[in-house]
Design a binder for these strands. Sequence first.
RNA 1: GGAGAGAUGGCCGAGUCGGCUGAAGGCGCUCGCCUGCUAAGCGAGUAUACGGCUAAUACCUGUAUCGAGGGUUCGAAUCCCUCUCUCUCCGCCA
Length: 424
Amino acid sequence: MLDAKMIRANPEMVEAALQNRNLPGALQNFLKLDEQRRNILGQVEEIKQFRNQASQEVGRLKKQGQEAVELMEKVRQVGLEIKELDERLKQVESSLDKILLNIPNIPHESVPIGIDEKSNLEMRHWGEPRMFNFEPLAHWDIGPNLDILDFERAAKLSGARFTVYKGWGAQLERAVINFFLDIHTGQHGYQEIFPPFMVTGDCMLGTGQLPKFAEDMFKIEGRDMYMVPTAEVPLTNLYREEILEERDLPKHMTAYTACFRAEAGSGGRDTRGIIRQHQFNKVEMVKIVTADSSYEELEKLTHDAEDVLQLLGLPYRVVLLSSGDMGFSAAKTYDLEVWMPSYNDYKEISSCSNCEDFQARRANIRYRPASKEKIRFVHTLNGSGVAVGRTVAAILENYQQEDGSVLIPEVLKPYMGGLAKIEK
RNA sequence: GGAGAGAUGGCCGAGUCGGCUGAAGGCGCUCGCCUGCUAAGCGAGUAUACGGCUAAUACCUGUAUCGAGGGUUCGAAUCCCUCUCUCUCCGCCA
């Protein structure tokens, strides 16, 4: 959520930024409503002041044993006015809220301007796509061939976009999860968290999934409960409505959760394999930091995600997203894209964002500066560290052998009971 | 699911029959003083949001906030209703 005062002070700047987000005119009624609000507020507060003073006067008179019927009647009348104005104020404020909650974050100045992914910028890449001296298979063929992925029975259980992992496949998934967590906690200094997989609507509002993207999520019937679409939601909301001490910052957290997404708008995309599922595993990193350090922290966060891909020996590139390709809450985002032979292309496997104070405002997460200055909003960052299912797919494809077997990356062997390769 | 208790400021914790209570007291924290010393003592200060005024996120000023929403009243942290959450006991259960 943007700061209303900031918008009021720089309407043209905000409008321009929203245009770069493909949302021209999103500010339309905001300024008018904002003025209305201050108008009504001024009126109603003045009357309330009178009421407060008058009712104190009544108290004083009564204490002295005097009558105050006239004054009491006057205040009663005024009370009706207050009620009416309060009602109007509430309406205007809820309209304003609706606008504010639907406005995305403003891109950082370093973000390339563009309407879609074509304007993204490749920052760097690591490793080179493997050259195969045989025809490589896609993971949706490798998996069933080795009997470690079962798409058909998954469909029987749950329909499209679900996968059953079996045997070494299931172990590989678990190995990757543990490997990621061990690296982030042991080498990158994150605190491991194991959060609930279901959260309230307030949490979804706090991180920006609601109100705009309700159709992307799985909601529990008849309850104010949602399946988490990413651990970013519970981790960031952990400190919702709290005032932290600066000495307790930064907070670096990592968590494994299953993630649940309705994939409403993704029609026929990535229908094969485990790239785009309704349920997938992910290890997420979330940072809660002060404003002056957040961009430095974003670089580190991105490197922490890159690190696990390097350890796994998976070729990838880092892409800076353009203004039009970024997520709703982000001010700046780096995507990590892993080389995926079946796509003959790089495929997103991590997204690392600085949300600045956008989520902090919504979730009301603040901190008290050590200098005892005014309380401020924190900055929040999140990044996949990284998507587990896509990692498994990348391993299967990048480490496949001509005989159909798949080598286990060195760093994962300890997690697989020393197994060197998965074969039939 | 049944029965009961409770939700107050950064934390702990008072609030009498509704009326200078934004809220006693304590802790913590900040600043100053004092003290021959990693202690103690003394003094002062210490919520947030949104308005107005301002160059100002500085003063000053107004309004709101004692779990949330609604009601009664001239006036509610204090009375009434609804909801949410926490705790205790019972039941059930991985």
